[in-house]
Deep mutational scan, measured.
Amino acid sequence: KTYTFRVRIVDEETGEEKEIEVTAKSEEEAKKAAEELKKKYPNLKVELE
Rank of each mutant, 00 (worst) to 15 (best):
E35L: 11
V22Y: 06
V10R: 12
S26R: 01
K18T: 14
T23E: 11
E16H: 06
N43K: 09
E47L: 14
E36A: 10
E36W: 10
A33Y: 15
I9E: 00
V7N: 00
K1S: 06
L44P: 02
V22H: 01
E35R: 07
V10F: 13
E29S: 04
I20C: 14
K45A: 05
E27A: 10
I9Y: 12
E49P: 08
E21D: 05
K32M: 11
G15P: 00
G15C: 06
E12P: 15
E36G: 06
K32C: 12
E17C: 15
T14Q: 01
E49N: 09
A30L: 13
S26Y: 02
K32P: 00
E12Y: 09
V7Y: 09
E27V: 13
I9N: 00
L48S: 05
E35F: 09
E16D: 06
F5W: 13
E29Y: 03
L37Y: 08
L37D: 00
A33E: 05
A33F: 15
K32N: 10
F5R: 01
K45R: 13
S26V: 01
F5E: 03
K25I: 11
E27D: 03
R8Q: 03
E35P: 00
Y3N: 06
E47T: 14
L48Q: 05
P42S: 06
T2M: 14
Y41A: 02
K40P: 01
E36F: 10
T4W: 11
L37A: 02
E12K: 08
V46D: 03
D11F: 04
E12S: 09
E17T: 13
L37R: 01
K25F: 14
R6H: 09
V22C: 14
N43Y: 09
V46S: 04
E36H: 08
T2A: 06
V10L: 10
A33C: 15
V22P: 00
A24P: 00
E47K: 08
R6V: 14
S26K: 00
V10P: 02
A34Y: 15
L37T: 01
V7D: 00
S26E: 02
K18V: 13
V7H: 00
E19Y: 15
K40S: 06
E13A: 12
A24H: 03
E47R: 08
E27F: 15
K32A: 11
L44Y: 10
I9C: 08
E17H: 09
E36V: 09
I20V: 08
V46W: 09
T4M: 09
A30P: 00
A30T: 01
K40G: 04
V10D: 00
R8E: 00
E36R: 09
F5D: 01
V10G: 01
K38W: 07
L44C: 14
R6Q: 06
I20F: 12
K31W: 13
D11V: 04
E27N: 06
V7R: 00
V10Q: 05
A30N: 00
N43P: 03
E35K: 05
E36S: 07
N43G: 12
E35T: 07
K39L: 11
K40R: 10
K18R: 14
V22K: 00
D11M: 03
T14R: 03
K31P: 01
T23W: 12
G15E: 01
L48T: 06
E28G: 09
A34R: 05
E21H: 09
L48P: 05
K31N: 09
T14A: 03
P42A: 04
K32L: 13
E19T: 15
V10Y: 13
D11Y: 03
Y3P: 15
R6G: 02
K39V: 08
E16A: 06
E13R: 11
E36T: 07
K31L: 14
K40F: 07
E36L: 10
E35N: 10
K1T: 08
E49I: 15
R6M: 14
R6S: 05
V22T: 01
A24I: 03
E16M: 09
S26A: 01
S26I: 00
V46A: 04
E28T: 06
K18C: 15
K18G: 04
K39W: 06
R8M: 06
I20S: 01
L44W: 13
Y3W: 09
G15N: 03
T14F: 01
Y41S: 02
A24N: 02
K40V: 07
A30H: 01
N43A: 06
T2V: 12
E17A: 10
E35G: 06
E28A: 11
Y3M: 08
K39E: 06
D11P: 00
V22G: 02
L44T: 04
E28C: 11
E47Q: 10
K31E: 07
K1R: 09
E16F: 10
E16I: 08
A24L: 03
E28P: 05
K38G: 06
K39Q: 09
E47G: 05
E21I: 15
I20N: 00
E13F: 11
D11T: 02
T14W: 01
K25R: 13
E12T: 11
I9Q: 00
A34P: 00
E47I: 15
R6L: 13
I9D: 00
T2K: 12
E13I: 12
E49A: 13
E27K: 08
E27L: 15
G15Y: 02
E17K: 06
K1N: 09
E29T: 03
E49F: 04
E12C: 15
E12N: 08
Y41R: 03
E17V: 15
L44R: 07
I20T: 02
E35C: 08
K1D: 12
K18S: 11
L44K: 07
D11H: 03
E35M: 10
K38T: 07
K32Q: 12
K39D: 06
E16K: 05
E29L: 07
N43W: 09
N43C: 07
T14K: 02
L37I: 13
I20E: 02
E12H: 11
R6Y: 12
K1Q: 08
P42E: 03
V10C: 11
A34L: 15
N43L: 07
F5L: 08
E16P: 00
K45T: 11
K32I: 10
K18L: 14
V7W: 03
E19A: 06
V22F: 14
V7T: 01
K39H: 10
K18I: 15
A33H: 10
L44I: 08
E27C: 15
E35H: 07
N43E: 05
G15F: 02
K1M: 09
G15A: 03
E29W: 05
K25H: 14
E28D: 08
A24G: 08
Y41M: 04
T23N: 06
K18N: 07
P42M: 04
L37P: 00
K45W: 07
T2F: 12
A24K: 02
N43Q: 07
E17M: 12
Y41G: 02
V46Q: 04
K32T: 08
R6E: 02
K18W: 15
A34C: 15
V10T: 13
I9P: 00
A34V: 15
L44V: 07
A33G: 04
Y3G: 05
P42L: 04
E13Q: 11
Y3K: 11
P42N: 04
